[in-house]
């Protein structure tokens, strides 16, 4: 009996051999969702708190945007490397991973949207 993960791991049409596990692909997809979500959360935090905005000002001429985006990229890359290491030899269901990543991306997208930020407590 084959699992959903195994179904997403086809044979190479040319050689008939099994292709490598798709765990690293799932890791890249989920890490992107995590990075986008982190960007959204950090954007809200920097907007809500002057102290945090000052702490995230890593390059003064750019302001808090420098820290917000640099940290989001850092989270994205760390999540990518971490998950890729974890799922290196595994077949992870691509459909389910994509769904989770897209939810994270959508929430991140929403959190950057200024009218949404205005409804948050403390604004």
């Amino acid at each position: 009996m084959s699992t959903a993960a195994q179904q997403s791991r086809p044979s190479s049409p040319a050689s008939g051999q099994q292709t490598p596990p798709v765990g690293p692909v799932a890791a890249a997809i989920l890490a992107t969702g995590i990075g986008c979500f982190a960007l959204g959360v950090l954007t809200v935090l920097a907007r809500a708190s002057q102290t945090l905005a000052a702490a995230l000002t890593w390059f003064a001429p750019t302001g808090p945007l420098s820290g917000v985006t640099s940290l989001a990229i850092l989270f994205w890359l760390l999540a990518w490397v971490g998950l890729a290491g974890l799922w290196r030899r595994r077949d992870v269901p691509i459909g389910r991973t994509t769904a989770v990543a897209l939810v994270l991306l959508a929430v991140g997208f929403l959190l950057t949207f200024p009218p949404f930020a205005a409804w948050l407590p403390g604004k």
Partner: peptide, 21 residues
């Protein structure tokens, strides 16, 4: 993962959605 992109519909859909985003 060139081969998988061409043979796994789920993966192609994922890439399409991320590209749209």
């Amino acid at each position: 993962y060139r081969t998988q992109v061409r043979t796994v519909p789920h993966l192609r859909t994922a890439l399409l959605l991320f590209t749209l985003a």
